[in-house]
Design a protein around this nucleic acid. Structure first.
Length: 422
RNA sequence: GUGGAUGUAGCUCAGUUGGCAGAGCUCCGGAUUGUGAUUCCGGCGGUCGUGGGUUCAAGCCCCAUCAUCCACCCCA
């Protein structure tokens, strides 16, 4: 019988990594709180047409990467490949959008049927942030400042680069798209295979082609920035101005286009060179037409998503996870011999009650390497207990130095030792 | 979806022209010891990713398959 294993591209997050996830999630939540964003939780499955209508029928995601199936009622359902569409659907469905502003965030698994590789998985996790009802550039700036603050708090700021571009209004973008296709069609036979395919699916991405011949053809091609409408230009200029005055460094990348159809005006991407081929760590932009496109009253929106696996990978390879994040225990409690088992457990219970928040694990199986075990378990303190007549006494170890304590002194000694650490 | 590399103990890896599956670390037990570190002794641990084939004999050669990694593609 074949060995049972996880589905390809879907990974278990083991304890040594889950502490990093928790650290990252806590930092993200702090930053989001600081900007007044509220959490929203959506289902992982939606009707298939939600994604077809929002992401775009001819994108790679919809055409070949979705986990789509029929339920028992013959409805076509899809495991969400991204969060924005669900978030818009949920906000619209519950009346969070009409005549009001909303700042929302969510986190959770997304699913895309792709060939797995480092930083790219079939079930992956995103933390997404979406804001509705605000059309000004100050919102775009807020989103970027928020991410920059997060990178700073994680120690990642110097390892990421912000790339920025404007796609213009939806009309301007559609117009440019047509002009570009018309131009490229003259050279269709000379384009590389991928670019030929993109002529129909996502022509703007041809600008990114690595094929030198295609790049030669592109040299004479019409430029997106020449087709921007005036309002979009002003919007973009305002955004750049705010970023400049707040000391955010960015690179203008006129070839930056996002893969999803719903973006307009501002698009941005935080990238890193420390992850290999999958270098985008956070990306997003404005999508003023999406709410209307999904059947709601026209409301502007903007947002981004960050890839949790990629950020975790970065934190680990750059060794930016603070030691305290890996410490999941404060105290390792052990007894001199197994006869003390019952007393040890009741002492552990008493300590948990007496010292709220104390993280304690007790162990009653021989004293060999007890401090090493404590350290391995992530505890900074070890208390080794022995019998003293009727009551207990013990040795409290901290940083390799012992301190003799009697039963009445346990709580005080532990509290003092923990405070000393801080 | 395309191309390439890899797969041997919990981990890191040796394993010669095909000839009895190994080391270090970890883990468990013991000795020494200052209830730490160091040192010493012993033990657990394997269908060599899986399934076929060639051969007297396969970890090694051949085919298939699964998984991981790298690049393309795509994207978070």
């Amino acid at each position: 019988m074949a060995k049972i294993q996880a589905i390809r591209g879907m990974n278990d997050v083991l304890p040594q990594d889950s502490v990093v996830w928790q650290y990252l999630e806590a930092q993200v939540k702090d930053v989001l709180d600081a900007y007044g964003y509220s959490e929203i939780r959506m289902p992982v499955v939606e009707y298939t047409h939600l994604f077809k209508r929002s992401i775009g029928e001819v994108t790679d995601i919809v055409e070949k990467e979705m986990y789509t199936f029929e339920d028992r009622n013959n409805e076509s359902l899809t495991l969400r490949p991204e969060g924005t569409a669900s978030c818009v659907r949920a906000a619209e469905e519950h009346g969070l959008l009409f005549n009001q502003t909303q700042r929302l965030w969510y986190q959770g698994p997304m699913f895309r049927y792709e060939k797995p590789q480092k930083g790219r998985y079939r079930q992956f996790h995103q933390i997404g942030v979406e804001a509705f009802g605000m059309s000004g550039a100050e919102l775009d700036a807020e989103l970027i400042l928020l991410t920059a603050r997060l990178w700073k708090s994680l120690g990642l700021l110097e390892h990421v680069t912000l790339e920025l571009n404007s796609l213009g209004s939806s009309e301007a973008r559609a117009h440019y798209r047509q002009v570009l296709v018309d131009y490229l069609l003259q050279f269709e036979a000379q384009l590389d295979e991928d670019s030929k395919r993109r002529l129909a699916s996502n022509p703007l991405r041809i600008l990114d082609s690595k094929d030198p011949n295609t790049q030669d053809i592109l040299r004479q091609a019409p430029m997106l920035e020449d087709y921007l409408d005036e309002e979009s230009k002003e919007h973009f200029a305002e955004l750049c101005h705010i970023l400049d005055t707040n000391g955010i460094r960015y690179v203008l990348n006129p070839k930056l286009v996002r893969g999803l159809d719903y973006y307009n005006r501002t698009v941005f991407e935080w990238t890193t060179s420390s992850l290999g081929a999958q270098g985008t760590v956070c990306a997003g932009g404005r999508y003023d037409g999406l709410v209307a496109q999904l059947g709601g009253k026209s409301t502007p929106g903007a947002g981004f998503a960050m890839g949790v696996e990629r950020l975790v990978l970065m934190l680990e390879t750059l060794q930016l996870v603070p030691e305290s994040a890996r410490q999941t225990l404060d105290l390792y409690l052990a007894a001199e011999h197994k006869g003390l088992q019952a007393a040890l457990i009741s002492l552990a219970e008493q300590l948990r009650t007496a010292i709220p928040g104390l993280r304690l694990r007790s162990h009653c199986a021989g004293l060999k390497n007890i401090n090493a075990k404590a350290q391995q378990a992530g505890a900074t303190l070890a208390l080794i207990v022995k019998q003293n007549g009727e009551s207990l006494c013990g040795t409290l170890w901290q940083d390799g130095s012992p301190q003799e304590v009697n039963a009445e002194g346990f709580v005080a000694a532990i509290v003092a030792a923990l405070n000393k650490q801080v």
